[in-house]
Design a protein around this nucleic acid. Sequence first.
RNA 1: GUGAAUGUAGCUCAGUUGGUUAGAGCACCAGGCUGUGGCCCUGGGGGUCGGGGGUUCGAGUCCCCUCAUUCACCCCA
Length: 419
Amino acid sequence: MDLQRPRGTQDILPAETPIWHRVEAAAHRVAQSYGYREIRTPVFEHVEVFRRGVGDATDIVEKEMYEFEDRGGRRLVLRPESTAAVARALQQTSLLAEPPVRLYYIQSHFRYERPQSGRLRQHTQFGVEAWGVLGPIADAEVIALAESLLTELGLKRLVVRLNSIGCTDCRPRYREALVSYLSDHREELCGDCQRRLERNPLRVLDCKVPGCQAVVAGGPKPLDYLCEACETHLSGVEAALEALGITYERDGSLVRGLDYYSRTVFEIGYEKLGAQSTVCGGGRYDGLMEALGGKPQPAVGFGLGLERLILTLEAEGLLPPGESPVDVYVAYLGEPLGPEAMRIAHMLREAGQRVEMEALGRSLKAQLRRAQKLLAPFVVILGPQELERGVVVVRNMKTSAQAEVPIEQLAEAFHNQTA
RNA sequence: GUGAAUGUAGCUCAGUUGGUUAGAGCACCAGGCUGUGGCCCUGGGGGUCGGGGGUUCGAGUCCCCUCAUUCACCCCA
């Protein structure tokens, strides 16, 4: 095989498209039920959108972008995420003239990573963003929206984890305290954490190495450093979640890799998925718009990975059963009857039936086998004897009952059958 | 980017210490039943053994490189 799909991509075959339709339809419906409206942004953007929005020092920008130069010498990149792109779109248009603006998207994202279960180089996110909203109600609203979607799809036992990473006022104070504490215990940290200490010290908090956990346990707690405004915000989010009956876990070690997050961060996960068990991740990003050179605008939102969501549905046995792609299979005997069989198929299609017609001129036995394989409930059989009398045999594949029906009454017969 | 495992028919897999024409089940096609699916029987089509190089009289089997998949790390959806 010399032609293969690029690494980390997948072909979604006809057997799988129904679950995608179902998930996407649910996402549209739930988002709209919260008053969110769909936005679509370009597949590629100028690199600067993500350099400034996501952050230069993040893994995404540093080593995961599909970057290229176009024929006009522009530095472009396949979007690695959508929030920065949406922020760019808002700046460029008049949408934000009348806040709040509630948006959602279902878009592909591209990151050059080593693939594994639940991680692809092209993946799809259902994302939701509320712009121009400052209060904790908005944070709770997007979490509730994600919950609604997961519930609607039949999922239970997903864990919501919640934390606050502070704002531009209090985060630096905590960061400083943490770095100074960790530096004193540098020798006790794992190699990864020694590097994290330089680049992204907050990451040390959720290291899984026992030794690091022990060090962290004795160090400064992020929540102790929250400023009053951030603390009030967090308890506001919790109060709203409680009012909605949404159960969550406070997780002081939950942090986010992207620069633009502030205050609220949250994840919704499903343990059975293995290492990539986070289905939904989000938070607040009040500083993003300014980082992109625009007027400051508070915002909160999340990204929900559809591939991971579908893996979860699969693991929970929630995939829809296979359904027949057709209502009627039109079989005929002998090439000369092809045109008349086509006419019959056409008539049925115009009457709203989904029809597959024999295309290979095989034996009746083979045609029936094919119809069975397709789970077609009915087969219309046209042979020379029938044609002579202007009728057709209609076979019910489930009961094996057969009846002759005049060709001109066929459409009506099926209409009554399915009505 | 790091570590490990795996690549043989459309699918799931056998294939002995290296030995002649590489197999099975399922799926597909045909026939048994010259116009009727499911069960059964018989036959048939399908393979660059992931790719390239090497060792050898001889490589699916051993060695090197490469590509891909899977799992984990980093990180993330």
